[in-house]
Amino acid sequence: MPKKTLKRLMPDPGIIKNNKLLGLLGSRLHDINLWHLNRHSAAGAFAVGLFCAWLPIPFQMLLAAALAMVFRVNLPLSVVMVWFTNPLTMPPMFYFAYRLGAFLLGKPHHYEHFEMSLSWLTSAMSTAGPPFLLGCLVLGLVSSATGFMLIHGLWRWSVSRRWKLRRRGR
């Protein structure tokens, strides 16, 4: 069952709450909803984590943790979902985001020769930046909504399946 597996893999809330560095967050870290695992908190955590995974910013995990606290969803699961973005997946993800943004803006996608200079970087970001950021935003919203609905549906299906098996006497 996924709930048992997720609970076994999650860190102990007591250890995290007593961490000196995390003491800056105060009582917000002691909210029981941040550590409870149910259908709503898991689906919300997937939504937060997948949205943050598409953001082309450093410290995505910190943003995911902050959003988990704001929306009161499972904090560890939100942070772990950001790991969907890693050095192996980032190039194809961000290339696809750029292509999608260019398509949505109706701009042709073209590539200039690569140069390690500040002037090349600023000119490349002025032409490729808007399609890239739009693509990241759209894919973040779509994957967030899809992840929420998928986890919510799988959780409901799992619970109904267990109830059916229980009624049959298994």
Results as ranks from 00 to 15, higher is better:
Leu105Trp: 07
Arg99Pro: 02
Pro76Arg: 03
Ile15Trp: 11
Pro91Gln: 08
Phe51Thr: 03
Leu55Met: 15
Phe71Gly: 11
Met61Glu: 06
Leu55Cys: 05
Ser123Ile: 04
Pro58Phe: 11
Gly129Asp: 03
Pro56His: 11
Trp120Cys: 03
Gln60Arg: 05
Ser27Gln: 13
Pro108His: 01
Ala65Met: 13
Ile15Glu: 10
Gly14Lys: 13
Gly135Lys: 00
Ala68Met: 06
Leu6Lys: 10
Gln60Tyr: 08
Lys4Thr: 12
Ala45His: 03
Arg156Tyr: 02
Phe94Val: 03
Tyr95Phe: 15
Ala68Pro: 07
Gly135Phe: 00
Phe46Asn: 00
Ala43Pro: 06
Leu55Asn: 01
Ile151Cys: 07
Val159Ala: 12
Ala124Thr: 13
Gly140Met: 04
Thr146Asp: 00
Met149Ser: 13
Pro130Lys: 08
Pro130Leu: 06
Leu63Cys: 05
Phe148Asn: 00
Leu55Ile: 10
Leu63Met: 12
Cys52Arg: 05
Arg166Cys: 07
Thr89Gly: 11
Trp54Cys: 10
Ala53Gly: 08
His113Lys: 14
Ala65Lys: 00
Glu112Asn: 08
Ala64Met: 12
Trp155Phe: 13
Phe103Pro: 00
Gly26His: 07
Lys107Ala: 13
Ala64Thr: 11
Trp120Pro: 01
His113Gln: 15
Gly135Thr: 03
Trp83Cys: 14
Pro92Ile: 04
Ile16Leu: 08
Leu134Phe: 09
Leu150Ala: 12
Asn86Phe: 09
Leu24Thr: 05
Ile151Glu: 00
Leu34Pro: 02
Val73Phe: 04
Glu112Lys: 07
Leu154Ser: 05
Leu29Ile: 07
Lys20Met: 04
Val142Arg: 06
Met93Gln: 10
Leu29Ala: 05
Gly14Ser: 14
Trp155Cys: 09
Leu24Pro: 02
Ser126Pro: 01
Lys17Val: 08
Gly101Tyr: 01
Arg170Gln: 13
Met61Ala: 14
Thr122Gln: 12
Gly129Glu: 01
Lys3Phe: 05
Pro11Met: 13
Trp54Asn: 03
Arg8Glu: 12
Met125Leu: 15
Val138Ile: 14
Asn38Ala: 09
Ile57Asp: 03
Trp120Ile: 06
Leu9Met: 15
Ala42Ser: 15
Val48Lys: 04
Gly106Ser: 10
Leu137His: 03
Arg72Ser: 11
Met116Arg: 04
Leu63Gly: 06
Ser160Thr: 06
Ala42Val: 06
Asn86Val: 12
Val82Asp: 08
Pro2Leu: 13
Leu134Val: 06
His30Leu: 06
Trp54Ile: 01
Thr127Trp: 08
Leu67Val: 10
Leu22Ala: 06
Leu37Lys: 12
Ser27Cys: 00
Asn86Arg: 09
Ser160Leu: 11
Lys20His: 04
Asn33Gly: 09
Met1Phe: 11
Leu134Asp: 05
His36Lys: 15
Leu25His: 02
Met93Glu: 05
Asp12Cys: 04
Thr5Leu: 15
Trp120Phe: 13
Val73Tyr: 07
Ala66Val: 11
Leu6Met: 12
Gly140Lys: 02
Arg39Lys: 15
Leu133Asp: 03
Val142Gly: 04
